[in-house]
Design a protein around this nucleic acid. Structure first.
Lengths: 220, 220
DNA sequence: CCGCCAAGGATAGTTGAACTATCCTTGGCG
DNA sequence: CGCCAAGGATAGTTCAACTATCCTTGGCGG
């Protein structure tokens, strides 16, 4: 198909597709002649993924480009691609505080988190960006005067572990099929809002029960 | 304290504080004379919260203003404020697809989700924005050619429910203390990245075990 | 063979958000 | 009485993400 049809199929305007091509978010079509390029079904999928990364994942164009680049770099093994893509996905902490006093608090919180997760037997690199995100969130919470939710923490971790196992299996399944190299990215970006939305609905349910709790039994 | 000191204490530049004052993200100080205003410790807290909403929560200035406005509007009861603030927090779905074919898929997915959650006994309004976010994410996943994760869904919901109960209790505790009106906002915005970061670390752990699984036992 | 013409690519312009710098007003104080 | 800095108002800047315009190119009809 040509640019015009790709635009129609994907719901992205022609100038925007050109922009994404320029930025390297979408691979160029195969040139069928010097002034015509042929686009495939993969391009439609890719455009949809890009839109999801930008709108749902709130990623910048630059971030999306970098993530997609490693996610499909044949120089890496599938496992490496998976890890590298995940490490590049936002959110990220720009830089830990330089201010010495804040830095002490930061390091202390990071240490506590690390200990707690190691105690659970979790294995990951000390350089995992998610660790810094965790530290930042907890540090901010503490800075606002709230207690660090350490016991909640253990509960969160225990609840999340089995989910991650199931998800990993699903992703690995799709990764076997070579056509779905971007499964990691799609699952990471799109399952996250699902989890958060469920959490909010659960809050609403809890709140509703406590307020106008009728004769119904609480959920198991 | 004066503007200059507020800036120092909060780590936000003076022009930015002025900007936030103008935009209504921070309440004005109490004017001690015509050219001097006194800012309190609450202003420091508020500025930190605002920065967290903008940087960690990736909210826009307008969204932050609206959320904070309802979160402390004395015209609402505590319970109403809680719900209203949560409903206004991002992410949001701008508009369901108008295209008739896509719209059918959308409604179908929305119906499936609603059925599933009702079957679990969850109570919430049909207008909850989180429902649309859920629908959008699942619809996008389906549009990319992945299966809708319905059985994972049940697992997610079951795992999240007890977390939500514990969190609600914590938030309610802080809400009792009148000085922490923004507890809902702080917890929603700051605990979400914690959950997502834990999920990513769990993925890394699972991946690491499957790859170079040593003699260690898998985590319970 | 020559020139037309549209697809596709290059270039510059637009828009909106989030600051940021400058100017202006004001009243306490020497 | 006039200086002067805090604080507020106004306009300017920067950056990302598009978006519109022009330009190049080569197949093809005359």
């Amino acid at each position: 198909m040509h640019l015009a049809e790709l635009s129609r199929r994907s719901g992205v305007s022609v100038p925007s597709i050109k922009f994404y091509l320029r930025e390297g978010l979408v691979p160029p079509g195969t040139p069928v002649s010097a002034r015509k390029a042929e686009y495939s079904e993969d391009h439609v999928r890719r455009l949809r993924l890009v839109r999801a990364m930008l709108t749902i994942g709130k990623m910048s164009v630059a971030q999306a480009r970098d993530v997609l680049a490693v996610a499909e770099d044949p120089a890496f093994t599938r496992h490496e691609r998976l890890g590298a893509a995940q490490y590049m996905l936002p959110p990220h902490v720009e830089a830990p505080p330089q201010d010495s006093e804040e830095r002490v608090v930061w390091d202390e919180i990071r240490g506590l988190i690390l200990d707690e997760l190691r105690r659970l037997g979790w294995r990951f690199l000390d350089t995992a960006p998610a660790l810094d995100v965790l530290t930042q969130s907890v540090a901010t919470l503490v800075g606002l005067g709230y207690d660090a939710p350490v016991e909640d923490f253990r509960r969160y971790a225990a609840a999340i572990r089995p989910m991650a196992e199931a998800e990993y299996a699903t992703i690995a399944l799709y990764e076997q099929i070579e056509e779905a190299l971007e499964a990691t990215v799609a699952y990471t970006v799109l399952v996250e809002p699902i989890l958060l939305a469920l959490r909010r609905l659960a809050h609403e349910d809890v709140s509703s029960r406590l307020r106008h709790g009728t004769g119904d039994e609480p959920a198991p």
